[in-house]
Structures are given as structure tokens and as C-alpha cells.
Design a protein around this nucleic acid. Structure first.
Lengths: 253, 253
DNA sequence: CGTCGGCTTGAGGTCGGTCAACTCATGTGG
DNA sequence: CCACATGAGTTGACCGACCTCAAGCCGACG
């Protein structure tokens, strides 16, 4: 049996906490059901009561809500290894929706199995708890951005955040990564409109900070972009600091 | 020895999870150190590495960050019973500050003691985890508001949220509660300026929705305010639904 | 009784929204 | 192979919610 999902989960949990051999065995033994979702499809919808968690194997997903006026606000983006609805383990009413941004493979793990694991392996429980706390730390950062930063800065911040999170799972070599988002989706995450996002991206491109074509995003001047976005990666609470400035990140030799 | 802090914690945890007699005994046995803080004083500051959690006994506190421009964004408000920095149990680097809005009594509990409790009492660990998840759910709600609602709606939403959270701990009878916030602090929470907040509050008062004088906040028309703020309390994930509309909330007889 | 912090209000500016048109790449069917 | 539709991106013109600046007000307090 293919253990892709379990291995990705394991790798992620090792990134946020200490995991020993016994923990590892139990994680690898988790029963996971795989499913594929096309872009734009809801994986879990607001209002549902769920009995399983999702782990993103590959692809790109987001969480969102609509206002009564029909405006959409994207609350979070998720990349491979993320467990976007882990919170449902404790609050199984979904107060927002979770959808595939691009085609995505999702592993489903029954809450019962996760509970069981948490009871037997407190260290894993701690790691999962920590995962949800990092989720929360990212929310806080978005609040600061939405409340007090300009559209430009917010955009810069988001691009830095995604670059760093993708780099952590090996998906953003040289600050180049696949960002399968329309400008409309970016706008709904940044609290802006498509028109503004378009202009912001144009300005960032002209200033030589980023270079975007199709779903490929390239950060050309990390330091400048991070400065503009007031990006301080410590809020991501990686166990091992990740260096991103131009000078760093190259293997010695 | 006075067990005020432990009792408040116990009451709160019972609100979010099932707690049995043994759990209760261990919670009441937690060592807590009390301290008083004046309004405006940092209880924990950004950048610190902390080794204890805080529980708010009484008063009013908030969490905040500053942008490089010096603008402040308030990330959360906290009322009696809240554990504002519970996340520090797993991520002891503080990525934001935590301060007393009004004079407040705070109980400090060493992380070690909480860890110990979590290991011995998985049910309590689950309750605490759940607490942090509700914190996160509130962040999500704020993101939606900051990104996609008007200043008016955001303000209405915040006033509803605080009313309901205070009602849950018995501090908002008849939708009247103590809100010891300056308009400046409200503005920094809502992503607005003092001037705008002033005008929004005036309009809400004129429309007969709220009535505010000094630090006393009275919601006059809950239904209208909730509608304006698109306030759906399910995101607070109370175990027992709280009814707030005009018709409800009165004791029968 | 003067000062200070918070509240209130007016006048004018701006960032980002709205509306609308055009381009461009992709895909589909005749 | 072209006609056409579709969806994303791009740009201009105008508008409005909210910001900035500034002044006056009021109660608390020394």
C-alpha cells in the first residue's frame, strides 16, 4: 500500500515538533483515503459537520467565506503537507468552506483515527496542536495586514509568506514557485479588487521585485519584497530558521 | 488559599468541553500567581520568550502589533476567563504583545504545570486545545470583516461579539456591558481611524442600535445590530447555543 | 482654574472601488 | 482552419468610503 499521505504528514510534523520512532510508526499506520479534486470544487463546505480531517498531498487549496452581499474573503491558502481543517477535530461544525484552488490530491483521515493517535502519542497530539496554532499565527498576521498595511504591502507580504511556506516543503527553489491563483483569488485574499491587484502586481513587476507569468511566481528581489511587506517570518514559528535573503539559501561549495 | 483563578479557569473549560471530577481536582490544584496590571501596561511583549500562560481574572485586555509606520493593529480582545497567550505553551516566542486595556487581574500559570496537567488529563488538554481553536475562529471572523465588510458592519460585528462573549461569562445582562475602550482602541481593532469610529458610533446611536456612555455599552436593538454586522455566533463554537435576540434570554415567569 | 485625554465635527484629499472597454490565450465546433 | 465563445488580464475614467488635518468641546483631576 502506498504511504504517500502518511509520509507527507510525518515530514510535516517533524518540521514542527520532535517525533520519535514509535510516534513515526503510528503515524505511518494511519488509515488514509485519497481523493482528487478539480479546481474550484468545495472539499468541505460551510455549515457541514465533518468526521474527518484533510491533508493536502499536492495541489493548492484555500479556505473562504462569503458575506451577505456575496463578496468572498479568502481566509487561508494551503500547500502540500498542510492540514487545513485540523480544527474540525475539536469543532466539527465548519464555519467556513475549504476548496481546491487548483487540482489537488487530498488525503482524508477519520477523526476517530486522529483521536486515537493523540491519546496513544501525546507528542503527536502536541505536534498537531502546534500545527493549529501556527494556522492561528498566520491569521493574526493577515489581520495586521488587512487592518493596517497598504494594498502593496499586503500583496508583498502574502507573496513572501507563500514563498517561505512552499520553500519549507521544498516547493520554492530560488524563490520561484507555482502559484495557481487568478488575480481575482488574490484580490479576495488581500481584501482588494481584481483591478487593484492587477495594478499592484504590475508595479511590483516594474520595480523588479517579482516576475509572474501564468501560474509561475518568481521573487526577484527577496529583501526588497520582504521589506515592503514588513515580512518577519518568525510568526510562522518554524523550528529551524529558514534563511531567504539573496545571500543565503545556497548550498556551500 | 483563594482559588479564584482556578475556579474561573474551571468554569471556562466546562463551557467548552466535558470535564469530570478528577479533571476538576487537578485544575483546582494548579499553582497560580496573581498580579494586577494598570491600563495601558504590557503584560507580555512582542519578542519575549515566555514560560507561563496568563488567565484573565477580571478587567479587559487586548493583543496587538505595530507596523513599521507605527500604526497599531489590535488582534484580539479578552474578557474574564480567557487565556490570551495559551498558544505560548507550544510556541514560546511571542509574535505580538498582550496588554491591559483597563486595570486587570491576571493569573500566571507556569507552562510546566500546564504541560503536566495536559499529560495527566487528556480531557483538559483537549479543552485547552479547543480554546486555542476558538481563538483562531475569531481571527478568521475578523479577517472576513477587515477584508470585506464596511466600517459600520465591522463595528456592529465587534460589538455583538463582545456582548456575546461577555454574556457567556455572565458579564452582559440585557446586552449591557462594560467596554473600557477608547475610540482610538476601537479604531485600532477595526482597522479604522478614530474619526471614522466616532462617526460610526454616532450613526449607530442615532439609528437606535446602541447606546454608549463612558465605558458602558448597551445594545438597544440586538437583531438589527447583528444583521448589520452579519453576526452569526456559531463561529464562537459555544457548546450550548446562546440566544440573544430580543425575544429570548428572559427567564420564563 | 488650567491642563490633559478623549470625544466631536468640518473640510478637503486619497487610496482603492466601480464601471466599462479592450487585449490575449485557450478551447470548441463547424 | 477559421468563427466564435470564454475567462483571465489590462487599462482608463470616475466615484466614494475612509483618511488627514484641524479646531473646538467636555469632564476629570491636580
Amino acid at each position: 500500500m502506498d504511504k504517500t499521505a502518511q509520509k507527507i504528514l510525518l515530514k510535516r510534523l517533524k518540521l514542527v515538533a520532535e517525533i520519535d520512532a514509535e510516534d513515526e510508526a503510528d503515524i505511518l499506520a494511519l488509515p488514509v483515503t485519497m481523493r482528487e479534486f478539480e479546481a474550484g470544487i468545495d472539499i468541505v463546505s460551510e455549515g457541514q459537520f465533518v468526521r474527518q480531517c484533510c491533508i493536502l498531498i499536492d495541489g493548492f487549496t484555500h479556505r473562504y467565506r462569503h458575506t451577505l452581499e456575496g463578496k468572498r474573503q479568502i481566509i487561508a491558502f494551503h500547500v502540500a503537507g498542510d492540514i487545513p481543517d485540523l480544527h474540525s477535530l475539536h469543532m466539527n461544525y465548519m464555519d467556513h468552506s475549504f476548496a481546491a484552488t487548483a487540482q489537488s490530491r487530498i488525503g482524508f483521515i477519520a477523526h476517530d483515527a486522529v483521536w486515537d493517535l493523540c491519546v496513544r502519542r501525546p507528542r503527536v497530539a502536541a505536534a498537531l496542536w502546534r500545527e493549529t496554532l501556527i494556522d492561528g499565527a498566520i491569521f493574526r498576521e493577515w489581520i495586521v495586514g488587512l487592518g493596517r498595511l497598504s494594498g502593496q504591502s499586503r500583496t508583498a507580504h502574502l507573496l513572501c509568506e507563500l514563498a517561505m511556506r512552499m520553500q519549507a516543503v521544498g516547493l520554492a527553489p530560488d524563490h520561484v514557485y507555482r502559484l495557481p491563483l487568478t488575480q481575482h483569488e488574490l484580490a479576495d485574499a488581500l481584501g482588494l479588487t481584481v483591478v487593484t491587484v492587477n495594478r499592484v502586481l504590475r508595479d511590483l513587476r516594474i520595480a523588479g521585485l517579482v516576475d509572474r507569468e501564468r501560474s509561475r511566481m518568481a521573487i526577484r528581489d527577496w529583501d526588497a519584497l520582504a521589506r515592503l511587506g514588513e515580512f518577519d517570518p518568525r510568526y510562522l514559528h518554524f523550528r529551524v530558521p529558514v534563511m531567504m535573503s539573496r545571500e543565503a539559501g545556497r548550498e556551500p561549495g
